[in-house]
Amino acid sequence: MAGTSLSLEHITRKSTLAKNAPLLIMLHGYGSDENDLFSFASELPEELFIISVKAPYPLPPFGNAWYAINFDAEKGKWSDNIQAKQSRDLIAAFIDEAIEAYPVDKNNVTLLGFSQGSILSYAVALTYPEKVKNIVALSGYINKDILPEDVETRDYGHLNFYCSHGSADQVIPVSWARLTPPFLDSLKIKYQYSEFPVGHGVAPQNFYEFREWLENHI
C-alpha cells in the first residue's frame, strides 16, 4: 500500500494488530528506493506495522538519496552534512506524522536502515532519542558531524541497537563500523554488533540474526 499524504513518500505493510502496533520504519541506502528493503517485509514479524520510506533527493537515472556523497573525498568531506542533517530532521518529523496517521504505538518505534539509511538511523536516534526505541543499523557507521554537540550528556538508557557490517565491504570500510561499539559504550547504550564475511550487503545469516533480535525487542 502506497502513502503520499505525509511529508515523505512511502509504502506500508499493515500489522495483524488493529491498534498500538509496533512500528518499523525502513530507510534505504544511497541510489536505491523504498522498494529495496521492503522486499523482505513479508519475512518480518507480522505484528509489525512496516513503513518503507523514499529518500527526498532523486538520483538519476533512477533511485534516490538522503544526501549527496563525494566518493573521491576523504572521510571528513565524504558526506554533504548539511543535507544529511536536513534528512535527519525530515525523518524525525516523519516519525511524528506516521504515529498520527497509522494505528501504531508511539512508544515502540524501530528504525531499520541500510548504508546511508543506517547512518541516518544512528543520527535520528542520538538526536531525537525520545522518538525511537530500537535501531537496526546495517552496513553503516556513526557520522559524528551530524550528531548534537551535547551527545555525551544525554540519556540514551532506553535505546537498543543492532549493528552489522560486511568484513569485505568495499563502500563503507569495516574499520569505520568498528568505531561504533566503543562509541555506544561511551554513551552507555545497549547494542549487539556483528560482522559477516560479505561486501556491502546483507547476508542471509545477517538477516536471520537481526530478525531474531527484532522479535526479542519489539
Rank of each mutant, 00 (worst) to 15 (best):
L214P: 01
H200R: 10
K75T: 15
L179Q: 15
F161D: 02
E43N: 09
W66K: 04
W213Y: 02
A84L: 04
V171I: 10
F71S: 11
N70K: 13
S79Y: 12
K77H: 09
S7N: 13
I82Y: 03
N108C: 06
K85L: 10
L8V: 07
I50K: 05
S194M: 00
E209F: 00
P197C: 10
L120C: 07
P197F: 12
S118R: 03
L187T: 00
Q116N: 09
L159R: 00
V53D: 11
S15G: 06
Q170T: 06
A92N: 02
S15P: 15
K188Q: 13
V104M: 07
H217A: 01
P61S: 06
P181Q: 12
K133N: 00
L120Y: 10
F38N: 07
L17E: 06
E195G: 05
S7D: 09
S15K: 03
W176N: 12
Y128F: 12
S42Q: 10
S175P: 04
E212M: 00
Y122P: 02
A168Y: 14
A177C: 13
H200C: 09
E149L: 11
T4K: 05
I146D: 01
G3H: 15
G199N: 13
P148V: 12
S32D: 12
H165I: 10
F40Q: 08
S167C: 13
M26W: 05
A98M: 07
S52T: 14
F71V: 06
A177H: 04
N70C: 06
A98G: 06
D33F: 02
G113M: 03
E212T: 01
N160L: 00
E97R: 10
T153V: 12
Y67F: 15
W176F: 12
A73R: 12
P173V: 08
L147Y: 00
P22K: 08
L179E: 15
S32Y: 04
A55D: 08
E47K: 15
P181N: 12
L24Q: 08
A168V: 11
G113R: 02
Q205V: 15
A98S: 14
E97A: 11
D105F: 05
N206G: 01
L27M: 12
A68V: 06
N206S: 02
D150M: 01
N64H: 14
G76Q: 11
E9K: 14
I218A: 03
Q192M: 00
Y128C: 03
I189A: 03
I189K: 01
P103Y: 11
P22R: 06
I95A: 06
N20S: 15
H158S: 03
Q116V: 07
G117E: 10
Y162W: 14
P56T: 14
G29T: 01
I135R: 00
R154T: 04
T16F: 03
L24M: 15
P173W: 03
N70V: 05
Y141M: 14
D150E: 05
P22D: 04
I11N: 05
G199A: 10
Q86W: 04
G199S: 13
F94M: 10
Y30P: 07
D155C: 09
L159I: 01
G117T: 14
K85G: 02
K106I: 06
K54V: 11
I50N: 04
V202C: 11
A2T: 10
Q86N: 08
A123Q: 03
Y67T: 05
S87E: 14
K14Q: 15
D72F: 11
W78K: 14
T16R: 07
